[in-house]
């Protein structure tokens, strides 16, 4: 019985896996090793409209893992550069609001303000790390995410959720899975895009693309990782903007 069910599971998994189409990543070959984990599951109609109108503003809101000592090397800046090169004639602007040690709940006022001031087409909401580090109740976290998504939708912004980075050294200390699951399920429920940074970076670690266990003061790896994240994010946005309208989510 067990053998049959396992065979069934495996074949189902294979069938599903075959269906998920990898994005064609014409980026740094190192980044591409994880491109199968970036899939435009839902349409980002706001991005499509913005590109058509030649004015694409993206707001990134997140905690410290969304920046580097040199902000020009961090993924929001890399994303901006990538989109500018890919979208000639479109005024691309990526604004980042990064606060270290700030939970999603605490960043809500900032999120609302950002949407009022910048009126971004897309909000990239990087979250979960601070919650996991503090052990904030996943229920509270979920309801905060709901509030934020609602606020973005009221402001007619598209939203992309981004989860934590994969930090192998601290994995035993920070219980990420409950929060990563919460983000995943909320994204699913609202049919919004999830940029699964955790899985992407884990893949890089497994394949040896980047050595994330390295003990170093150098910025090389950090810069390259952020560069790849910026590129993959850009791929995701462009791909999701291109999807036919039938994949558009049902949220008004």
């Amino acid at each position: 019985m067990k053998a049959i069910s396992i065979a069934l599971l495996l074949s189902l998994t294979a069938a599903f896996a075959g269906a998920g189409n990898a994005l064609a990543a014409d980026t740094d070959p190192a980044c591409a090793t994880a491109s199968s984990l970036v899939s435009a599951d839902f349409k980002l109609s706001q991005a499509a409209t913005a590109i058509k109108n030649k004015q694409l503003t993206i707001a990134v809101i997140g905690s410290a893992s969304s920046t580097l000592p040199d902000a020009k090397k961090a993924y929001p800046a890399r994303l901006e550069e990538m989109l500018i090169s890919k979208l000639p004639g479109v005024a691309v602007k990526v604004v980042a609001r990064v606060k270290a040690r700030e939970s999603a709940r605490e960043s809500m006022p900032e999120l609302r303000k950002l949407m009022a001031v910048e009126k971004p087409s897309i909000v990239i909401w990087q979250t979960g790390t601070v919650e996991a580090m503090r052990g904030i109740d996943p229920d509270t976290f979920r309801s905060t995410l709901e509030d934020g998504i609602e606020a973005a939708q009221e402001a007619r912004s598209g939203i992309i959720l981004m989860n934590m980075q994969y930090s192998p050294r601290t994995e035993l200390m920070i219980a990420m899975p409950p929060y990563a699951d919460a983000i995943r399920i909320i994204a699913l429920q609202h049919e919004i895009l999830l940029f699964d940074r955790l899985a992407i970076m884990r893949r890089w670690g497994e394949l040896g693309t980047f050595d994330l266990n390295e003990v170093t003061k150098e910025m090389d790896t950090a810069n390259r990782v952020h560069d790849c994240i910026g590129h993959l994010l850009g791929d995701l946005i462009l791909e999701a903007a291109k999807l036919p309208a039938s994949s558009e989510n049902g949220i008004k």
Binding site: M133, Q165, L172, V215
Partner: peptide, 24 residues
């Protein structure tokens, strides 16, 4: 557990994970 993480934290440094290292 404490022995392991005390050891890990003493030897760990990487600017990519500045945020996560706050857990120590």
């Amino acid at each position: 557990y404490m022995a392991e993480i005390a050891y890990v934290s003493a030897s760990f440094e990487n600017p990519l994970f500045n945020e996560e290292m706050g857990i120590f």
